[in-house]
């Protein structure tokens, strides 16, 4: 059998360091989508709490620091940073390797994302642990603030090249503007 070589979604594209931002790839390891069935929200949240110590997140929020639960749409969340327990009251789908995840950080990270994203990501309203499902240019993404000037941006793996291209163009634009 051919020897298969594992590559990450952004292999060969990252890291980048442009002006006031650094962009590098994050490997979340095992990623599991959890979507509670109708009426199963509480049972699912309780089961997650008992097994990995995080409850099912409210919209626009994440829970946990080790294993994390990241809200990612209507009645849906991603469990990252650990295995997902059996959840009889929810649809559970393996999303490992399905997402391209990049971390963008630095003094200008907010300014770079402001060029691309129509949601308000300012620190005064979008705090650490907050997340949004929104668009980066025309592409659906999830964005989570993970630090005072650091964000995680998730897009579907097939769009990794577009994600990096758009972030790079915006970062170059912000850097060029700073020189004027």
């Amino acid at each position: 059998m051919a020897k298969l070589i594992e590559t990450t979604p952004c292999a060969g594209l990252l890291p980048l360091s442009i002006g006031g931002v650094n962009i590098h790839e994050i490997n979340l390891g095992q990623v599991t989508l959890v979507a509670p069935y109708a009426g199963g929200a509480k049972a699912t949240s309780d089961a997650l709490k008992a097994a990995i110590g995080v409850t099912f997140p409210k919209p626009n929020r994440t829970n946990g620091a080790g294993p994390r639960a990241i809200w990612c749409g209507l009645d849906q969340a991603l469990i990252v940073g650990g295995a997902c327990p059996d959840l009889p009251q929810a649809a559970v789908v393996d999303h490992s390797d399905a997402w391209a995840v990049v971390r963008i950080e630095g003094a200008e990270a907010e300014a770079v994302l402001a060029r691309l994203v129509p949601a308000d990501l300012r620190a005064s309203v979008f705090k650490r642990g907050h997340t949004v499902r929104t668009m980066l240019v025309h592409m659906n993404v999830g964005i989570t603030r993970v630090g005072a000037s650091a964000f995680e941006v998730m897009a579907m793996r097939s769009m990794a090249g577009t994600l990096v291209h758009d972030l790079e163009q915006a970062a170059k634009g912000v850097a060029a503007r700073a020189l004027i």
Binding site: P59, N60, L74, P118, A119, V132, R133, T134, M135
Partner: peptide
């Protein structure tokens, strides 16, 4: 009602 006030481009 889920996400809060958002730009028209998302809809």
């Amino acid at each position: 009602p889920i996400c809060g006030e958002r730009d028209r481009r998302e809809f």
